[in-house]
């Protein structure tokens, strides 16, 4: 059974003090959160006591201002950041769609990029070859699939990325700032695939500032502020409380 359970999750890291003769610049930009510490020794609390649990079929919307910890939380769930405190228990295969260009190479064809993207996400050659036709069909790229990626428009590249990430039947899909790949027609297709995915016993976690998208797509909402959970519950409760627009102000 697919599930995610996070309990009292925290992520605190020290920003390495660096000796520099150059002009000093803000030494941290990677992750938002609260900054503490004295002098050159800074500590960033990116997540603070975050807890929630999700089960099969849940589509969680992560909302909150810029720097509230949405991306950090996604990256902890994916395994890029190791939490400094608390527990994350995940059962199910996790796939992520953070940066749509990651693993894509401009010079390679769409077909080759599907293959490369699969490889860097831990899929085997055989798995990718078996799924290739299906992915190409879903992306609707037609003959462009054998053209180098640099000839694609942004929307086309996004369509390709979305098709690869979702065609592999991820049990858990993490998405960040997915602003809707492609045109209206493709967005409808994408939405129905996301619904399918969530219905086929998957979990989707989507971080976005796009309120209508969250409302349409998700059934649960988690509001973050400065790394802490401000609200966690059903979508209806969240939107009834009217805290939606204030939390999405960033």
């Amino acid at each position: 059974m697919v599930s995610i359970r996070a309990e009292n999750l925290s992520l605190v890291y020290r920003v390495q003090p660096r000796f520099s003769l150059g002009r000093s610049r803000v030494p941290f930009a990677a992750v938002g959160g609260q900054i503490g510490g004295k002098g050159r020794d800074h500590q960033v609390t990116a997540l603070d006591g975050v807890g929630f649990s999700l089960s099969a079929g849940d589509r969680l919307g992560l909302v909150g201002r810029n720097g509230s910890g949405k991306t950090t939380l996604l990256k902890v769930l994916y395994g890029i950041y190791e939490p400094t405190g608390g527990i994350v228990e995940i059962s199910g295969r996790v796939d992520a769609l953070f940066n749509i260009n990651i693993g894509f190479r401009r010079e390679a064809t769409g077909r080759r990029n599907i293959f490369l993207r699969g490889l860097v996400n831990g899929r085997s050659r055989e798995e990718m070859e078996a799924r290739m036709d299906e992915i190409i069909a879903f992306s609707e790229l037609g003959d462009f699939i054998d053209m180098p990626l640099k000839s694609y428009s942004q929307g086309m590249a996004a369509r390709l990325a979305f098709s690869v990430a979702t065609a592999l039947n991820p049990e858990i899909l993490l998405m960040d700032e997915w602003i809707g790949a492609g045109d209206r027609h493709f967005q409808d297709k994408a939405r129905s695939r996301m619904n399918e995915l969530a219905e086929s016993a998957g979990i989707v976690v989507l971080a976005s500032h796009n309120e209508p998208l969250i409302e349409r797509t998700c059934n649960k909402i988690l509001v973050l502020e400065q790394g802490r959970v401000l609200f966690m519950g059903d979508k209806e409760a969240h939107f009834e409380k009217g805290n939606a627009s204030s939390a999405n102000g960033g």
Binding site: I80, A96, F98, N99, I102, G103, V120, N121
Partner: peptide
């Protein structure tokens, strides 16, 4: 950097 921050390789 981009790969390290975006993938779990």
């Amino acid at each position: 950097e981009n790969f390290i921050k975006g993938l779990t390789l």
